[in-house]
Design a protein around this nucleic acid. Structure first.
Length: 569
DNA sequence: ATGGTAGATAGC
DNA sequence: GAATGCTATCTACCAT
């Protein structure tokens, strides 16, 4: 049961001395382990457990050994491997369920879903992983917690330091690596070999979460912990749904890149771009398209410091847009008889920044239904907003996005040229920066406040947080002004988006639709043709309402449209 | 061979 | 005083 996250970028050097080496996994008394190898034993044991009305259970999933020809990165994938053992702990007892010997899992289903009474609270170490494994057994516990989620949030984006968090990490490490005695070739399976560790971990999970919960509360992390737990069913459903790919169309596009490279003598820049496209995407149909023509990337809701999702295998959050690779997004399509709903937020980062800074001028722009780019352009050009040309607005858009998160005038020159094709001299760049801060004084004050942390950061840790309390800690000497501006904004937007995902999962199911992809502030769903217009409005309203709960003082606008592919506008 | 890092480039 | 940020993945390179 390793943590399921993607490979993280290398952690920044931690200035503190290394943590003492992990103690052996013996802080928890291990109850005698009871093996359940037949349906009768399972039914009897779980009936005893249920009779005691255990409020809280610990549950650990061990997958079967991967087939030798399975790609290594799939070796811990609950979607690709069957579950071999469950370790279930509660009321001082630990059961090992040998699933290969069990034909009828209804007693487990009844216990975990509370068929007879209130469902128990099930503690996982990695709920995302464990719920995926249980889902493939047809079991979806409605009440659960997650020690990995708690530990990750308590780490605050820096290296794990909290004692209890180290315990959580230890559980995962032991499960992954700490085999008690090496597996002998041809003897027991790796899962069987690990059952003592799984049993100990299952017994540890309840006290572990009990230790972590007050820590979450003290750090103001309870709300974001609850959010991350409640989010998981929508993530699992989205991963299970995947998104349809027009494989022949995709292959035609890939072939056209190859053709262009051989035959058209492209510029060095275009050649580099073509090489990148070819190497990145040509193998996608082979590597990532399932037999039903759908791609099912792995979503990682907790893998980033900001709270945004990461996406891997493949990363569908960086599929080239129309201007980079014409026709590519057109290959992402709904199932037959369905339409796509494509929805995203309008200027979400500016709106969140207006909320958090706070900046009354920027809030007022949005409350008036005005355009923030025209507002900046008006200051810049000394004209009323109504008289702004499209060129002036284009410049102001670069100004707003560039300076919001602390870009300097010099860097802005390159940015304006590279991203917007605008040539500016140093004076014009500085004037643009001045105009931005003059238009939005609340933003300027916010930047000054964050800037003032710089010198404190030399000798003490600095922590910033999002609307729901997600924290990012910069260890002393490792402060980043720009990240301190950006992370609360990105993170707050991510939290509103995650709330929307929870609500959309429920709302779409009611009309036969389902979410298929999420890209930071963009949500893709597929819905039956006949429900498309109702779904479009539902998605738009749901997204706006959810974001408004974390950004209450600025109007939130989401735009949703009905489409036949991802490229439709 | 395997593993880690830097730099480039794609997305929002 | 200045300073966009957050990602994943590819290639090239260097180390073991």
């Amino acid at each position: 049961m390793p943590p399921q996250g993607p490979p993280r970028r290398p952690a920044p050097a931690d200035p503190r001395p290394p943590a003492p080496s992990a103690p052996a996994l013996t802080p928890w008394p291990t109850a005698p382990t009871e093996h359940l190898r037949d349906d009768l034993a399972l039914a009897r044991a779980l009936a005893e457990l249920a009779a005691q009305h255990p409020a809280t259970l610990g549950l650990v999933v061990l997958l079967a050994a991967p087939h030798p020809d399975l790609p290594r990165e799939a070796a811990h994938d609950p979607r690709k491997l069957r579950t071999e053992l469950l370790a279930l702990a509660g009321e001082g007892r630990v059961f090992i369920l040998h699933l290969a010997c069990l034909a009828d899992l209804r007693p487990l289903q009844d216990l975990l879903t509370g068929a007879a009474s209130t469902p128990p609270y099930v503690v996982f170490h990695d709920a995302h992983f464990s719920l995926a494994a249980l889902a493939s057994l047809g079991i979806s516990p409605p009440r659960y917690g997650c020690t990995l989620t708690a530990a990750t949030l308590l780490a605050e984006g820096a290296s794990l330091r909290h004692d209890a968090s180290e315990l959580a990490t230890l559980v995962a490490e032991q499960l992954h690596h700490g085999l008690p005695g090496q597996v002998q070739q041809g003897q027991v399976s790796p899962a069987i070999a690990r059952y003592p560790v799984a049993a100990a971990a299952a017994a540890a999970l309840v006290p572990l979460l009990r230790a972590l919960t007050p820590a979450l509360r003290e750090r103001g992390l309870s709300r974001v912990y609850e959010l991350e737990c409640r989010l998981l069913p929508s993530v699992l459903a989205m991963e299970a749904a995947g998104v349809g790919l027009d494989v022949p169309g995709f292959q035609r596009i890939a072939a056209s890149w190859q053709h262009e490279k051989d035959t058209t003598a492209p510029t060095p820049e275009r050649l580099a771009q073509l090489d990148k496209l070819i190497s990145n995407y040509t193998r996608w149909p082979v590597d990532f398209v399932d037999d039903d023509g759908r791609m099912r990337p792995h979503l990682h809701p907790l893998a980033t410091d900001s709270g945004r999702f990461a996406c891997t295998r493949p990363n569908l959050q960086q599929v080239p847009a129309e201007h980079t690779a014409p026709g590519l997004r057109a290959c992402f399509i709904p199932a037959p008889g369905n339409r796509l709903i494509i929805a995203d937020y309008a200027q979400i980062e500016l709106r969140v920044a207006a909320q958090l800074a706070p900046c009354s001028a920027m809030r007022q722009v949005f409350r008036d239904g005005r355009d923030p780019h025209r507002a900046t352009a008006a200051t810049l050009a000394g004209k009323p907003e109504s008289a702004i040309s499209s060129h002036e607005r284009k410049l102001a858009k670069a100004v707003n996005f560039g300076f919001l998160f602390g870009m300097g005038a010099r860097r802005f020159q390159e940015y304006a040229l590279g991203s917007y094709g605008l040539e500016l001299d140093a004076q014009a760049a500085q004037a643009a920066r001045d105009a931005f801060f003059a238009t939005f004084p609340g933003i300027a004050a916010w930047h000054r406040r964050i800037g003032a942390l710089e010198h404190r950061s030399q000798r003490e840790d600095i922590t910033v947080h999002t609307a729901l309390g997600r924290r990012k800690r910069f260890p002393a000497g490792h402060f980043s002004f720009n990240a301190a501006l950006n992370i609360p904004v990105q993170g707050t937007a991510a939290e509103g988006f995650k709330r929307a995902m929870i609500d959309l999962h429920v709302a779409l199911a009611a009309i036969g639709g389902r979410g298929v992809l999420c890209v930071h502030d963009e949500y893709l769903a597929e819905v039956p043709e006949a429900a498309a217009e109702a779904a479009r409005e539902l998605v738009q309203r749901t997204m706006e309402a959810a974001m408004a709960t974390v950004v209450p003082d600025v109007p939130i606008v989401a735009e949703a449209l009905i489409a036949s592919s991802w490229s439709d506008k």
